[in-house]
């Protein structure tokens, strides 16, 4: 008989297909990237100096540690978890680099490696015992902070010159921050979106059981994500150390919520697996540049926090709106 004709699919209009394609092309990273570009454009319009190599350095350099922190948080959120300890972790890294490394580089590096191993262990604990990450990471945040205060009770210490000049590396041709930004974004985006194991990692956050049934180790995936988070936390601490020149256990406390905001503004979702490296970097830029922009516009300092929050909510509302429109158009 000739009846198994392809009728399962209802015919679609060309327009609909095009819209779907558009929806895929403008993935979750699109809106935050647009927002970051707009904010940066406004800053340049207000202060043309921002676009100069020096200006770029001044505006973007302080955001590099935040970007690393957001990427660290992104890996945890990709696992379907939340890391409330990343701020203290970065603070501890900063203290180790400013206090232990100058005295004994070997001990310092071993210490930093130990911190990564501790994160891996945290991932195992969360994956195997099914503990809520929010509790484990919150608990660990006090451990990181406590150890950091033990090493350095009040801010101080001196970051080795080598690290300072590495972090502030700024060749004449292209601003150093642009190089770091580009290399990191491309590397993480390629790994997460274009490598097979990247897909497995995202999948494990979205539906761990499904990935396990497909023959992958869910625990190894979780540990990989936590190790990646720890490595990017250390990078954040390294850049903070180089930029400030000293150690301070409390230095990155504000990164906990900022990093979560960065990931979510950058198109991530607490559901797990829904993350984009480009989006996260753009989200970090939005969260970070917003303060500078409001300052340039001359918003009163008392209103700055509220204004910053409002703009972030606006970005999220826009995203929800875009999702809703895409969904309505897809229905049938």
């Amino acid at each position: 008989m000739t009846t198994t004709q392809p009728v399962t699919e209802p015919p679609r209009s060309l327009g609909q297909a095009a819209r779907e394609r558009l929806g895929t092309a403008f993935g979750p990273w699109f809106l935050p990237t647009l927002a970051a570009v707009i904010i940066f454009g406004l800053m340049v319009a207000l202060r043309p100096l921002v676009a100069s190599p020096t200006g770029l350095n001044l505006v973007l350099a302080p955001l590099i540690p935040l970007i690393f922190a957001v990427l660290a948080q992104m890996f945890i959120i990709a696992a379907g978890d939340i890391d409330l300890g990343i701020g203290s972790f970065i603070g501890l890294a900063n203290v180790v680099i400013a206090v232990i490394i100058p005295d004994s580089p070997v001990a310092g590096i071993l210490f930093l490696i130990g911190m990564v191993v501790a994160y891996a262990a945290m991932g195992v604990l969360i994956a195997v015992r099914g503990l809520p990450s929010i509790v484990v990471t919150l608990g660990m945040s006090f451990v990181w902070l406590g150890v950091a205060i033990l090493i350095l009770p009040t801010p101080g210490g001196v970051v080795p010159e080598g690290i300072v000049s590495f972090v502030r590396f700024n060749p004449q041709v292209v601003p150093g921050v642009i190089i770091v930004l580009t290399v990191v974004t491309v590397a993480v985006a390629l790994f997460l979106s274009r490598s097979k194991y990247g897909a497995v990692l995202r999948g494990s956050g979205s539906n761990a059981e499904g990935v396990r049934r497909a023959g992958w180790s869910v625990i190894r995936a979780k540990v990989s994500l936590y190790v990646l988070a720890a490595v990017f936390g250390l990078l954040s601490g390294l850049y903070l150390s180089g930029q400030t020149g000293g150690g301070d256990p409390y230095i990155a406390q504000s990164y906990v919520l900022l990093s979560i905001a960065g990931v979510i503004v950058g198109g991530g979702s607490f559901k797990g697996g829904e993350v984009s490296a480009v989006g996260a970097v753009a989200g970090a830029l939005v969260v970070g540049l917003l303060g500078s922009l409001l300052q340039f516009i001359g918003v009163q300092s008392s209103f700055q926090a509220a204004a910053q929050g409002l703009v972030l909510v606006l970005v999220l509302v826009l995203r929800a709106l875009v999702n809703w429109i895409q969904k309505v158009r897809r229905t049938l």
């Binding site: 097979k196 897909a199 497995v200 995202r202 999948g203 494990s204 956050g205 979205s206 539906n207 059981e209 499904g210 990935v211 049934r213 497909a214 992958w216 979702s269 559901k271 797990g272 697996g273 829904e274």
Partner: peptide, 15 residues
Amino acid sequence: LSLCASLRVDETAAI
């Protein structure tokens, strides 16, 4: 169902 909602179809296939 045991598919990962956040992945693309070709990524799902690869898993």
